[in-house]
Amino acid sequence: MSDEESYELLGFDNVLLPVGDLGEALAFYERAGFTLGFRFDEAGIAQLKVGGETPGILLRAELALGHRPPPWHSPHIWLEVPDARAAARELADAGITPLDEVFQEATGWTVEIADPWGNVIGFTDYTKRRELGRRG
C-alpha cells in the first residue's frame, strides 16, 4: 500500500447504540447525567455529549428492537469520571440501578449500568493511577 493509499486512525467519531424508542432512551440517559448534543427525529437519531469532546454517543432508533434484560451480550462502553463511587450514588439517586456493585480495577473503581435495550455503559475512574487519567 502506498502512502497515498494508507490511512491513519485519528480518534473516535461517535459510538452508535441501538435503542427501541428515542424519547425513552433520552429520558434514561438524561437521568444518568448525559447532556443532549442534538436530536434529529426525522433520522431517528440523537447524540449525547461526553465531556468536552466533539464525539459522543449516538442513539439510533431501531423500531423492531424491544427491551432486553441485562446482561445482554454487547460491547461495554466505559467513560472516565472523577469518582466512580460518587457516580454510582448519583445514578442510584436518579433511580438507575447498577448491574453489580462498584468494583475495583487496576486503575481505580468502576460501576456499570444498562439501558432498557441492554446497552452497557460503565463509569470508571483513575483514583489508583491518577497519572493515567485525563486530569493526571
Rank of each mutant, 00 (worst) to 15 (best):
K49Q: 03
L36W: 02
G95W: 07
Y29R: 07
G108F: 05
A84W: 01
L79D: 04
P82G: 03
V111E: 05
T107S: 11
D83G: 10
L26H: 04
E62C: 11
F34D: 01
A61Q: 12
G118E: 09
G118F: 11
V102L: 12
L26V: 09
G37I: 04
G44W: 01
I121H: 08
D100P: 00
Q104V: 10
D100V: 12
S74N: 14
D100E: 14
T35M: 03
G122D: 08
I57Y: 01
F34L: 03
F38R: 03
E105Q: 14
E101G: 15
A114D: 06
E80F: 08
D83L: 10
G66L: 14
R60E: 10
W109K: 03
L79F: 08
R85L: 12
A25K: 05
V81N: 03
E112D: 15
H76S: 11
L65A: 02
T127Q: 12
F34I: 04
L36F: 01
A61S: 09
R60C: 10
N119I: 08
A86V: 14
W117Y: 12
L36E: 04
R68N: 11
T54N: 08
G52L: 01
P70V: 12
P75S: 14
R60H: 14
P98N: 08
A94H: 05
E42C: 00
W109L: 09
G37C: 02
I45A: 06
T127V: 13
L91R: 13
Q47P: 01
E30V: 14
R60G: 10
L63T: 06
E30Y: 00
R31D: 08
Q47W: 02
I121Y: 06
R85F: 00
E90F: 11
L36H: 04
D125H: 10
G122N: 10
E62H: 14
R39K: 08
I45D: 02
P71W: 14
G122P: 13
I57R: 04
R31L: 10
I96N: 10
E30G: 09
E101R: 15
A64Q: 10
H76L: 15
P116D: 01
Q104R: 12
I45R: 03
T97S: 14
G44M: 05
A27Y: 01
D83C: 11
I121N: 08
E131R: 00
T110Y: 01
R129W: 00
P69R: 15
A88K: 13
A88T: 13
A87E: 11
G56A: 08
D41V: 07
D41G: 02
L48D: 03
A61P: 05
I57A: 04
G33K: 02
G51F: 02
G51H: 02
W78T: 13
G95P: 12
G56I: 09
R68P: 00
R85Q: 13
